[in-house]
Structures are given as structure tokens and as C-alpha cells.
């Protein structure tokens, strides 16, 4: 057990040392973050007062949540059909989703912008949302499909035999079992959306700067404690959200009925 615990400790050290450094230096009383000059909360105060920063944060959160929602809305019904009913469209569907996964960000950004221009669409937050939905789709689809394939249709068959309508079957049986996969997809899509820089740059309209773009421009002058403070605040938000989900007892894996 001890070697295992030591190994895990090393792994966590590796994964978290940059994060710990970032948090520590967000309290550094020096604008250049090179040496420790004493502790202060002033960078958090600056972030809080920086209204444009908070605006981009709320914008990014909105984009992330809305695009994740629409991703699930599109992926879930298709996954239901794809995983259960054999369809000739399946192969080409997966191929198209793989293409979305493989295409580099820059290429996706430029070609999507070209497409929007050809269609004479105005750019704005909605264009970013559309692009984010597109690159999140493969993740959500493959996760939900995998979960569905794992489940088997026996329970649904039994319910239908007992006289349940398709809607009832979905809400009482399929959806509860799918919830962990859907939550996992949602969280993954939100994280992908919050981290995206390149696609957002090309598909953003005016006043649609998202947080990653803002962070990129703030980092032009090097890592400064304000960015550290922002990072720490975002991390705290994420931990809180995950904690709330855990408290609400959403299981990571569903209870298997054996």
C-alpha cells in the first residue's frame, strides 16, 4: 500500500505544483511575480473592481453553459438512436464527429468564419456558441453512446410490456441511468468551452471577448498576480460547483442493477 500511496502522492505533486504556485503567487506583493515580497489581497481587489474582466467571465460562463446545453440537446437523441437502433447513417455520423475532433482549432475557426460570412450571418456571442457546440459534440456523443451500449435495452422492453408510453420509458428509466453520462459530458463540454482561445477569436463578434481571450491578452505582459488571482477565483468556483454536485449525490457511475 505504501508504494502505491507514495506513487499517487508524486502524481498529485506533478499535477498540482503549477496550480499551487499560481495560488501562492496571487498573494505576492510584487507586480512581477519573480520573488516573494510579502502577502497581500490587493490583486483580488483589483480583479473584483475590474468590471471588464468580470463581464468577460460572465460572458464565458454563459457561452459555456448554453453551448453545453445545446450540445446535450443535439447529442442525446442522436445517441439514443445510434446506440440502440442500427442505422446506415451511423458510420458516416461517427466519421463526421471524428473529423470535428481531429481538425485543429485554427482551421476550424477560419473555416467556420468563412462559412458564416458566406451565409451572411452577423457575428456575436451566438457565433461562438455555435462553434463551441460543434467541437463539443463528439465528446458528448461518444460518452453518452458508450453509456447506452453498456446498459442494454432489457429494462425498457420490460416497461413497454407493462404498458408504459415511450415518454414514460425515457423519463423513468433511460434518463436516470443516463444522468451520470450527461453530467460528465456537460462538465467536459464546459471545461472545453472555457479553455478555448483560437476558435473563439475567429468566431467572436464585437464585444464577444471571452475569458480565455482576455487572459491571453493579459498574459502578453507576462504572468502577473492579477491573472493568478483570477485563476484562483475560477478554481474556487469550479471546486464549489463540483462540491455541490457531489453533495447533491449525483453518482459518478450509476448503480448497476444486477
Amino acid at each position: 500500500m505504501l508504494p502505491q500511496k507514495f506513487f499517487l502522492f508524486l502524481v498529485f505533486l506533478f499535477l498540482y505544483s503549477p496550480i499551487v504556485i499560481l495560488i501562492l503567487f496571487s498573494f505576492n506583493d510584487s507586480p512581477f511575480s519573480a520573488r516573494w515580497h510579502g502577502a497581500t489581497f490587493k490583486w483580488y481587489g483589483l480583479v473584483w473592481k475590474n468590471s471588464s474582466l468580470l463581464l468577460t467571465l460572465s460572458r464565458s460562463l454563459l457561452v459555456a453553459v448554453v453551448s453545453s446545453f445545446f450540445t446535450i440537446l443535439l447529442a442525446l437523441p442522436a445517441a439514443l438512436v445510434s446506440a440502440r437502433a442500427f442505422s446506415r447513417i451511423n458510420g458516416s455520423l461517427r466519421l463526421a464527429l471524428m473529423c470535428s475532433l481531429i481538425l485543429p482549432d485554427l482551421v476550424m475557426g477560419i473555416t467556420t468564419l468563412t462559412l458564416f460570412s458566406c451565409l451572411h450571418w452577423n457575428m456575436g456571442l451566438h457565433s461562438i456558441i455555435v462553434a463551441h457546440v460543434t467541437f463539443c459534440l463528439p465528446f458528448a456523443f461518444f460518452i453518452i453512446t458508450a453509456r447506452l451500449r453498456n446498459q442494454g435495452i432489457a429494462l425498457e422492453e420490460a416497461a413497454t410490456d407493462l404498458g408504459a408510453s415511450p415518454m414514460q420509458v425515457f423519463f423513468k428509466i433511460t434518463w436516470p441511468n443516463l444522468r451520470p453520462a450527461v453530467w460528465a459530458s456537460l462538465l467536459l463540454c464546459i471545461s472545453l468551452s472555457l479553455d478555448d482561445v483560437v476558435v473563439s477569436f475567429f468566431t467572436a463578434g464585437p464585444s464577444s471577448t471571452t475569458l480565455p481571450l482576455k487572459i491571453q491578452s493579459m498574459l502578453k505582459i507576462g504572468l502577473n498576480p492579477q491573472v493568478n488571482a483570477l485563476f484562483t477565483l475560477i478554481l474556487i468556483c469550479i471546486v464549489l460547483i463540483v462540491g455541490i454536485c457531489a453533495i447533491l449525490k449525483t453518482p459518478w457511475k450509476p448503480k448497476t442493477i444486477s
Partner: peptide
Amino acid sequence: YTSNEELMAKLQAGSSG
């Protein structure tokens, strides 16, 4: 934006308002 080239690519790809 962070470079001339990015700006050019964005304007070449389409009008972004």
C-alpha cells in the same frame, strides 16, 4: 488581437462586424 497576421486572417475569412 495579438498579431497582424491574426487580424489579416480574420478580415480575409469574413467580416466580423
